[in-house]
Each structure stands twice: as structure tokens, then as C-alpha cells.
């Protein structure tokens, strides 16, 4: 998050800065929780994993909910945040710079949890978007499946899994697959997620894997192979090694739920700071706040430098 005029247009962006969150996406988790209350269980919510956690706004929410704002017993509570990118420290959160598909990561988390399973796993991860919608949606689903692999190895029965999705052309296939592992799968859209964006969240309640299936992470196994023991793996190569022909795939539309209540700030709206009106939205003064966390180095930093120096101007 930079220091910019975006403050004015995007109230969540501004609120995130005011409340010390590293990204506006913190409100997405808060609003999901307003509806599902998965972070409000003082007694049963002890071990939590935040996957693809950088820059860490969801971990911040978890930390505040489970520790700062908690009135109950803090003993045995543990938050682990995992990302390939480094993350600056967050109070009450153990950060791991690791690959979520690697079995070692799993054993590290289990070790931190004293070999107990997690009560809640979440992932707000998203890939670099290319503009090829089918590829972007596929990569996002693979990210979810990678998170889900780890989740199936670490989530206790009846636990909750929450992850970011893109609601594109094959989302109903994902819903149908998740239906084999969870009692209930809901597509939730927080008010803080823009209406113009394909983004939404799957909230998977009541983890209940097939009883005869034992998930096992193996770097050399594909996602399809990993899930081949339960009904998720659709596209196995058959025993005669022949690729399957095209067929209509199983799809299912998940229940949709809007989160955040009607009185919460609308992320599609333009807000005014400089005038009075009767609405009850709190209006901060129009002063640009410093960003909570400095912007990260983009991969094209060198190209930007060259452009600034006029070295990329067309000469032929």
C-alpha cells in the first residue's frame, strides 16, 4: 500500500491504514467472520494456519481476534502464517517462509502445533494475473488445491477452510469437488470485495473426508494423484493409459452469501470527505496517511528505472 490519492476513493483502503492493517483485504476476513463467526469461538479455536499469508493482513486479523481481543484462555493458541515471500513479524504469529506444497512445511506446522491438528485454515493467495481468463482461473484453482492438499493433512474433522476464488467459468467444478470433503460449501462475497471483481471466497464448513482416504503430501505427485483416493480426482489417466475423451464434467452451484451487512461501506461507491450528510459512515479527515508497509519491489523495477532514464524510448 502506497501513500496515494486512492485514499479518497477507497474507504476500505483508508480504513486499513487507520487501523494498522497491511492491506485492505483484512476487512474481507472480518466481514466473512461477521457472517460465519468462525473466529469467535473462544474455546475451540486454538490452532490456525494462514496460507499464502504475505503481506499478512489476515494474520493480523487472526492475531487480534484470537489474542488481543480475546477474553478467554490464551493457552495453547497458535497461529502459523506461511508464504514463499518474506513477511515482517506479526505479534502472536509464527511466520514460515516456505512452500505450501512441500511435505517439510507440513511437518514444521505440525511440530509447532505439538502434533495436534488445526481448527481453521485460510488462504487469501492469488497468482499473477495474465489476462488469459482461463489460465488465471486455473492457476487460482491450483493454488486453492495446493492449499487444500496441505489442509487435508492438517485440518481436524469438522474444521473450517476459507480461500479466495475467482468466480469464472469452472468455479462450479471446484464447488462440486469441495462437496466431497466438507459438509457445506458456501460462496461468500464480503462487501469489501469489489462488485466488479471476480473475487469471492469459499467458506468450507465441517471437514469430513472419506473415511478410507489418507492424504499424503508427496512432491512428486500431482494434485490429481493426491486426491485420487477420494472422488475429487476427475482426470486420472485410465488403467490402459489412454487419455479420456471430452465429457460433461460434474458441476454444482454453491449457495451464495453476501457478507458484511447492508450498513457496511460499499467498495464500489465513491465517498465524499468534505461535506456533511446524514449517513452514519464515519468520515476521516482528508489527510493522506503513510502506508503501513512500504511497497514491495516489483519484478519490473529495473525496467521502470530504465524507462525513467529514457532508455526505453523508441529509437527505430
Amino acid at each position: 500500500m502506497g501513500k496515494s490519492s486512492k485514499d479518497k476513493r477507497d474507504l476500505y483502503y483508508r480504513k486499513a491504514k487507520e487501523q494498522g492493517y497491511r492491506a485492505r483485504s483484512a476487512f474481507k476476513l472480518l466481514q466473512l467472520n461477521d457472517e460465519f463467526h468462525f473466529l469467535d469461538d473462544e474455546t475451540n479455536l486454538k490452532r490456525v494456519v494462514d496460507l499464502c499469508a504475505a503481506p499478512g493482513s489476515w494474520s493480523q486479523v487472526l492475531s487480534r481476534k484470537m489474542f488481543t481481543e480475546s477474553k478467554g484462555n490464551l493457552d495453547g493458541k497458535k497461529i502459523v502464517a506461511v508464504d514463499l515471500q518474506p513477511m515482517s513479524p506479526i505479534e502472536n504469529v509464527t511466520t514460515l517462509q516456505a512452500d505450501i506444497t512441500h511435505p517439510e512445511t507440513l511437518s514444521k506446522i505440525l511440530h509447532l502445533f505439538g502434533n495436534e491438528k488445526a481448527d481453521f485454515v485460510c488462504s487469501d493467495g492469488a497468482p499473477d494475473v495474465t489476462g488469459l481468463h482461463d489460465l488465471d482461473e486455473y492457476v487460482q484453482q491450483q493454488l486453492i488445491m495446493s492449499a487444500l492438499q496441505l489442509t487435508t493433512c492438517i485440518l481436524k474433522k469438522n474444521g473450517t477452510f476459507v480461500a479466495k476464488i475467482f468466480r469464472g467459468r469452472d468455479i462450479d467444478m471446484l464447488y462440486s469437488q469441495l462437496g466431497y470433503l466438507f459438509e457445506k460449501v458456501i460462496c461468500a462475497k464480503p462487501k469489501s470485495s469489489r462488485g466488479t471483481s471476480l473475487e469471492a471466497f469459499i467458506v468450507c464448513l465441517g471437514y469430513n473426508p472419506p473415511s478410507n482416504w489418507e492424504p499424503k503430501l508427496d512432491l512428486n505427485k500431482s494434485v490429481e494423484e493426491f486426491f485420487s483416493g477420494c472422488s475429487l480426482g476427475r482426470l486420472k489417466i485410465s488403467d490402459d493409459n489412454k487419455l479420456s475423451n471430452w465429457k460433461i464434467e460434474e458441476r454444482d452451484i454453491a449457495e451464495f452469501m453476501s457478507c458484511g451487512g447492508l450498513d457496511s461501506v460499499d467498495s464500489d461507491a465513491t465517498y465524499h470527505f468534505d461535506e456533511d450528510d446524514t449517513s452514519n459512515v464515519k468520515k476521516p479527515a482528508l489527510v493522506s496517511l503513510d502506508p503501513i508497509q512500504s511497497p514491495t519491489n516489483p519484478p519490473y523495477k529495473k525496467a521502470l528505472e530504465l524507462k525513467r532514464k529514457g532508455k526505453l524510448t523508441r529509437a527505430v
Binding site: 489460465l135 490429481e224 482426470l235 486420472k236 489417466i237 487419455l243 479420456s244 471430452w246 465429457k247
Partner: peptide, 11 residues
């Protein structure tokens, strides 16, 4: 030539 379409398990 739709009938020639085959499915690979991954992208």
C-alpha cells in the same frame, strides 16, 4: 474435429 479432443489431467 471435436471428437479428437483428449483430456490431460493437468493444464
Amino acid at each position: 474435429l471435436k471428437h479428437t479432443e483428449l483430456y490431460v489431467p493437468e493444464w
